[in-house]
Amino acid sequence: MFFQSSKMSTFGYFWFVMLAILGVISYSAADLQFNFYAKTCPKAEKIVQDYVHEHIPNAPSLAATLIRMHFHDCFVRGCDASILLNFTSSSGNQTEKTAVPNQTVRGFDFIDRVKSLLEAECPGVVSCADTIALVARDSIVLTGGPFWRVPTGRRDGLISNVSEALSNIPAPFMNFSALQTSFANKGLDLKDLVLLSGAHTIGIAHCPSFSSRLYNFSGILGNQDPSLDSEYASNLKANKCKSINDTTTIVEMDPGSFRTFDLSYYTLLLKRRGLFQSDAALTTNSTTLSYINQLLQGSLQNFYEEFALSMEKMGRIGVKTGTSGEIRKQCAFVNSN
């Protein structure tokens, strides 16, 4: 039964080739691509860019939180705008947005306003997931930061669960091993870890994300993280987070340069002045420490180019394309059928 007629073999080979070709076509159509909306909504990227250019100069601090939103979205179920959902039938009201790591994320209304403009131009065409990706990029560029390419064609997810956000978003208290695992689970390597952490060169943090390093390190009340520069720690205690119970004070992640996308974040790491435990962890591994030194020995333009590659890579994590998911009419809600 291992032998077939020549005619049957030819017929079978023909269909094998046709299925293979169809498979390639299907995969290509479903993949992300640059200028995905060229025919279906040619003004889409310009609409996003114009809105960002009009409003971010009045609120430049939003750039940091918008790129953080993009990062947090991609690390949970892929870049599918699940972070924007207020409710899904599978999770009740406990969506990703309610998870502790996302409670300080801002800019949801900004995304909603951009999306409403896109809907007015091309109803049901541009996804919320692509909107986040484009807004994050354009916001960083407008504040003087790096440009990266954003392929589009993402579709929006239907599920958002608080527990998945808690288990997938890298925490500020993670050690190196946990960070490595978290990034590897998303297809990102140690170089990506170092580069994407560089986004901490802009923006602010709230005391609870790092105050244990000052007052309760390793769960022992009164202990201070020995890896944290003592002078820096003393300043934080005296002038910023004056007690472990402070939940409202905000602190610059890159003191003196928190609105400039530059290399000073990495300089501070080598001075043991990274704000988060996860920042300090980057200097505890020889590979990541080597990447940090290479960045500091290179130019700002080199950092921008390397950062851009990692951002594009991150933006492809677990994307839904083709017929997966949907194009939400409103980013906070799945479409009603």
Rank of each mutant, 00 (worst) to 15 (best):
N58M: 14
T40G: 03
K186S: 06
Q33V: 01
E326I: 02
S182D: 03
M311G: 10
R68D: 15
R154Q: 00
L309T: 11
A308K: 12
N239F: 07
E164G: 10
F110K: 05
R272Q: 14
A64I: 02
T10F: 14
Q94S: 15
M69S: 01
E305M: 08
T88K: 03
G198C: 01
N86Y: 11
N239Q: 12
L270F: 01
E306Y: 05
N235Y: 11
S6L: 10
F71G: 00
L179E: 09
A38L: 03
T40M: 02
A184M: 04
T287P: 08
K191C: 05
G318E: 09
L193W: 06
K242L: 13
V76D: 00
F217C: 06
I111W: 11
Q277T: 15
L193H: 03
I250G: 08
F333R: 15
P172A: 12
Y266W: 07
D80F: 03
F16H: 10
N35D: 09
G78Q: 05
D156Y: 00
L66R: 02
A59H: 08
N35P: 07
T131N: 10
M1V: 11
T267I: 06
R328D: 03
C41D: 04
L309W: 14
T288M: 07
W15N: 14
L214R: 06
I317Y: 01
C331M: 08
G107L: 02
